[in-house]
Nucleic acid binder design. Structure first.
Lengths: 191, 191
DNA sequence: TCATTTTACTTCAAATTTTGAAGTAAGTTG
DNA sequence: CAACTTACTTCAAAATTTGAAGTAAAATGA
């Protein structure tokens, strides 16, 4: 097992006890670092990360779904809600929205249609360039986002308990951003 | 903008220059930390993370798709390949596989059928419990995984250039695992 | 200036992925 | 051994994603 991981993975000395990337014993949410400092060799390949990301993404989607059900939202799903969150509080074009989420054009078009039908967004043709649609949340759209953010507050409090947590979240975010760039460039120009 | 982020987010002092969670200027893959040390206030909400995770997941899926196309794999898609990677080199039951990826039963059943039809896995009824299917990669399945891992080697080398990178990947991995647990428990027991 | 190309997006149909309800067969329990 | 639970499968419907083709406006260039 370790043998296999070492094949393409890279080693790092770390201070987390008994925690290997490849299998997931039931670890509690309790802090594990900064208590003992035995040094272990742990390996994270980009595939391990990709699998983790897939799992976490699935988890979040279903969480979002249940939260939306609680809110009584029936006309749009979690994917559409993510688009709303991507729009945020600014007015932007479809193209800008594509960049924000690496969506495919036809996909976003489809979602925007549903969101417009549901009254969550306004769509106006730009003055400058009439090809370009300007998108913005309606009152209803902003309300949904606000409700979801409120519901999310509890998670933020659990996930970010102290400075260490915050730093780790920050590092995770940056590292994911790097993955995004590397994988994205690779897809376009080939590694 | 910052105002909004502060709403539900939590602050942290960090040493990354000019990098805010909410918008994505074209940052290069070059290192940014450990050069200058101006202190900024950056915020990562769990929604920002969720959106990032969604984007990265999308990127990886399309990368995997192109890699599989290069390999001439036509009978299964990236989702099925992820299942293969989840199985890895051990023999396990469908239930264990569900845990590994937070899949839904009927979904995995569907994938396993395709993978079995394609000759990527073997499925044998357990001796002990004939309800339980034991799953394992075939030669062909292992070959595909090995090819994908080989193709992935280049990414590992780009992503893990030095000890700092490795540490950050490790932290990202652990942090995602924590998200997984928190979001998963919340879904089951409500925060 | 006006044909040509490019950009910005939409539409539609098909493929893929995911869900959920309903099954089946094998174990377990009272 | 009847009733229940577990471990999975099947199927149909829904949601999501892709890709090819279309439209209209803007930019380009001869």
């Amino acid at each position: 097992m370790i043998q296999k991981l070492l094949h393409e993975g890279v080693e790092v000395e770390t201070s987390i006890d008994g925690y290997y990337a490849a299998d997931f014993p039931e670890i509690t949410t309790e802090k594990q670092s900064h208590r003992h400092h035995p040094v272990h060799t742990v390996v994270v390949t980009h595939f391990e990360l990709a699998r983790m990301i897939e799992r976490v993404n699935r988890r979040f989607a279903s969480l979002l779904r249940t939260e939306m059900t609680k809110l009584g939202i029936e006309d749009v799903g979690p994917a559409q809600a993510m688009v709303l969150m991507a729009i945020g509080d600014v007015e932007l074009s479809v193209g800008e929205l594509l960049d924000r989420g690496h969506y495919v054009g036809s996909n976003i078009s489809y979602y925007l249609k549903q969101l417009a039908d549901g009254g969550y967004i306004d769509r106006v043709a730009s003055q400058r360039d009439k090809r370009s649609a300007r998108i913005r949340l309606t009152e209803k759209g902003e309300q949904l986002c606000a409700n979801l953010r409120d519901a999310g507050g509890a998670y933020n409090r659990v996930l970010a308990r102290d400075a260490d947590d915050l730093r780790n979240l920050e590092i995770a975010f940056q590292t994911l951003h790097r993955l995004e760039l590397v994988w994205g460039n690779a897809a376009r120009y080939g590694i």
